[in-house]
Simulated scan of single mutants.
Amino acid sequence: MITLISIALLSLSLVESLDPVFISDDTSRITVTTEQAKIITARGANATLPCRLDRDIEDAFGGTNMRIKWTKLSPDYSKEIDVLVSMGFHKKTYGDFQGRVYLQEADENDASLVFSEIRLEDFGKYKCEVIDGMDDATDVVSLELEGVVFPYSPRLGRYNLNFHDAKKACKDQDATVASFDQLYDAWKGGFDWCNAGWLNDGSVQYPITTPRGPCGGNNTAPGLRNYGLRDKDRSLYDVFCFTSNFTGRFYYINSNINGTKFTYDEAIQACHEEGAEIAKVGQMFAAWKLLGYDQCDAGWLADGSVRYPISNPRRRCSPTEAAVRFVGFPDKKHRLFGAYCFQPFY
């Protein structure tokens, strides 16, 4: 005789066993494979996200009932963003992907997605889904960009950005909010920073390679310190931005024709007179990290900060490490600095 307690325990075990399980149909006649779990590219380049169909029947691929759908997974995996849908001769692209993506279709089993003119915000995970009648199959591939992660705080000082302000701050500096994977890769490369910053999934973290008292404690292990998900409207932190290759020329102007340094407004004008614009923080980090740019002279940037990039550490120029040195946000009327300019190539 089954007691009420036994029934309750049986019901509980069923709930517990069903909750985390994703049920798949093993009788499906189709599968898809992405061949590579990760595609690495750079901003401005082209890339192909592989996806191939394998069916145990001999019907021609791309029939009238065959549907191919590519979506991008949001950073927190809470939603999917439509990229491309194809059914036979009918194809549709969505949003910012319009005009930049298409199916490769090298043969009847090829559902690979081709990207042109990769943008910073394109990085992430993409799902290839093929549906044929009652059968469907999916696989996921990551699109990653070569680039650099850098910390950013505004003129107001540290911990003054909610998540929405953080996104705008990175965009204004030719960057986007970094992902966990990007910050993790930067940490593995030696990135150490003791101020907490937003990531694109809404979490707040910071990378520590040398544990110390003010940064989680002396006896803690190196790694990413994680504050977890925070209120995107009310919580205030710095932000970790990510930028990649640029198409243009980054350079330094020391002074005007009279040998005088610039105020902030004069720096903007000096760049403008050369057919350029005053450089952004992200452009300086990209030039430093990806091109090895080295200049031991402090100069104005677009956000009103003064910085200089050192790739070859030496006396009086970041003697202990390669870094972008931050002077601060000085009075914009001071004539104490040169100017960093950026001239885009079209």
Rank of each mutant, 00 (worst) to 15 (best):
Ala178Arg: 06
Asp136Trp: 15
Ser203Leu: 02
Gln182Pro: 01
Gln182Trp: 04
Gly189Trp: 08
Ala196Phe: 01
Asp192Trp: 10
Asp185Asn: 08
Asp136Lys: 15
Gly157Leu: 02
Pro222Leu: 02
Ala169Val: 07
Trp198Arg: 07
Phe150Lys: 01
Asp174Gly: 08
Pro151Cys: 07
Ser142Gln: 11
Trp193Asn: 08
Ala169Pro: 03
Leu199Lys: 03
Asp132Gly: 01
Val204Ser: 03
Pro211Asp: 06
Glu146Thr: 15
Asp174Trp: 12
Val140Gln: 03
Leu143Cys: 02
Trp198Gly: 04
Gly124Met: 02
Leu143Met: 06
Gly223Asp: 07
Val148Ile: 14
Leu199Asp: 07
Thr176Glu: 14
Val130Asp: 02
Val177Ala: 03
Asp136Thr: 13
Gln205Glu: 14
Gly223Pro: 11
Asn160Cys: 09
Lys127Asn: 12
Gly190Pro: 06
Ser153Lys: 09
Val148Gly: 07
Gly216Ser: 04
Ala166Ile: 06
Arg212Gly: 03
Asn219Ala: 02
Asn160Gln: 15
Lys127Cys: 08
Pro214His: 12
Gly190His: 06
Leu183Pro: 02
Thr138Met: 06
Val130Tyr: 06
Thr210Val: 13
Gly189Asp: 13
Gly133Glu: 08
Ala196Pro: 01
Lys168Tyr: 05
Glu146Phe: 12
Pro154Gly: 05
Gly189Val: 00
Leu145Glu: 06
Gly124Ser: 09
Ala137Trp: 06
Tyr159Thr: 09
Thr210Ser: 09
Phe191Ser: 08
Pro207Ile: 08
Leu143Glu: 10
Arg212His: 13
Asn162Leu: 07
Gln205Pro: 00
Asp132Lys: 12
Pro207Thr: 10
Thr138Phe: 10
Asp132Gln: 14
Val149Ile: 05
Trp187Asn: 07
Tyr184Asp: 15
Asn195Gly: 04
Glu144Asp: 14
Ser142Trp: 02
Arg155Lys: 14
Asp165Asn: 10
Asp139Cys: 01
Thr220Ser: 14
Cys194Gly: 07
Gly202Arg: 07
Ala221Cys: 00
His164Glu: 14
Phe180Leu: 13
Gln182Ala: 11
Arg212Asn: 10
Phe180Glu: 12
Asn160Leu: 02
Lys125His: 12
Val204His: 01
Cys128Pro: 05
Asn218Gln: 11
Gly197His: 04
Tyr126Thr: 10
